[in-house]
Design a protein around this nucleic acid. Structure first.
Lengths: 240, 240
DNA sequence: GCCGATTTGTCCGTATGTATC
DNA sequence: CGATACATACGGACAAATCGG
């Protein structure tokens, strides 16, 4: 992030997460931050607004900006960001392995068009993969990619990282991801492919992903072992 | 929302949801919106940024701002906003009834302090309620309120709307809400109090709520019937 | 391939309003 | 009442990306 407001955001975030500004304390005032970073107050305000939206601070009119981040907050699957399985593995320090179950092409039916949001009749590449965390099968990933935008997915690419392929090799930028969470009874495929232990249900994340042209190029269903899944978001009462 | 940027946000949102700017179309350019609303481009940009963050549009540098909202998106429990049970009931058009199961005071133990984020030793009011949608018990709500900030919760208040009491009678403003979503096996209380049908698990939302002073005054566990729960959020790859 | 028009992205300096202390 | 701090808004400047001629 090379923008000034982004640098200020990251610097403050580091200090908050590092405990320099503990829970319930106040960060420096706008005027002080302006001087510190030698920039205009609008730029500072933009950084503070980001922190607010991510749930780290709470500005109080006439008083200051209070830190409301608790270090104890577990961040299993991050606070609302876009993250790949590999990134999550590194951050949470577990060994990540991906097994490709199937890989092939499909034509989008009318029913699937309604469910996925893909145009009816488009050619999509369907990938089904199992994610292992420290040797246990924890996630069943079902991805569909618009073949026109993400061509030539090989078993090798699928086993490594499709996102690395998309962003690296293809040079496409992933921008927006809309996600829906729900819980479902386990199906036969879940029971057969995942190490569910005593559980007979899964946490499901349905995902619509857009590139920087605003075109939806991916539809995904991730079916998670319930014990190894949680997701955190922040909601604000007023729009900012 | 009386701020100019908020009015522009709402006007554009209406038009997008109403189909005036369909999926994949472009909204008017900054310059056109400036003229239309007789305001500066920074004000327009702020409104557009809100729409972007909520997942309605995608700005493309040099081209325009593309709509990426699909009308088919179901919005069961809203797109990341803060909403009360009553508001959700009205929006989704079901009959909402609340039954108070228990109501009393507790002192925050060391273990509960760690789980909830309340200071150890504080006095909290504990409310347990069942939410009925069209006559069926669908949600088990367990709330804890800092008694110092939310005093005198009566059974009548709990059966009506605690939020209405907090925001109306007490005049406290609810600002930030941090939520964690997960799925759990049903416990005895879930089975006894909810109409779970053939399900033996629940979707759980853990909630930390802050007022406009940045003080956490509420901790909640909402345990939902899996079939009547879904939650949608938007994630952006880059901070804005 | 280059240039210019259009459009979004970042940033500044200033002014005014509102809330707190 | 004045000083401080956040909130909204303006108008201008320049950068970066896109697109058509």
């Amino acid at each position: 992030m090379k923008a000034v407001y982004g640098q200020i955001y990251e610097a403050l975030l580091d200090q908050i997460q590092g405990g320099d500004y503990p829970y319930q304390s106040f960060i420096p005032s706008e005027a002080e931050l302006c001087e510190l970073y030698a920039c205009s107050h609008n730029t500072v305000r933009r950084a503070v607004r980001l922190l607010t939206q991510e749930g780290y601070v709470q500005p109080i009119n006439g008083k200051g900006v209070r830190v409301i981040y608790l270090p104890s907050e577990r961040e299993d699957f991050s606070m609302g960001g876009i993250e790949t399985f590999k990134e999550a593995a590194r951050r949470n320090n577990f060994e990540a392995v991906t097994k490709v179950v199937s890989l092939g092409h499909e034509m989008v039916s009318k029913a699937f068009a309604l469910e996925s949001g893909f145009p009816e009749g488009s050619d999509v590449t369907h990938v089904e993969r199992v994610r292992l965390m420290d040797g246990r099968a924890r996630i069943l990933d079902r991805n569909w990619y618009l073949t026109g935008l993400v061509p030539d997915i090989t078993p090798e690419v699928a086993a490594d990282s499709i996102y690395a392929y998309i962003e690296g090799t293809l040079g496409m930028r992933v921008t927006t991801s809309k996600r829906t969470f729900l819980a479902e009874k386990a199906r036969r495929a879940d029971r057969e492919l995942l190490d569910l232990g005593g559980y007979d249900f899964v946490a499901v994340v349905v995902n619509h992903t857009f590139n920087d042209d605003g075109v939806m190029f991916e539809y995904t269903q991730s079916r998670h072992h319930p014990e190894h899944f949680s997701f955190t978001t922040v909601a604000l009462r007023d729009q900012r």
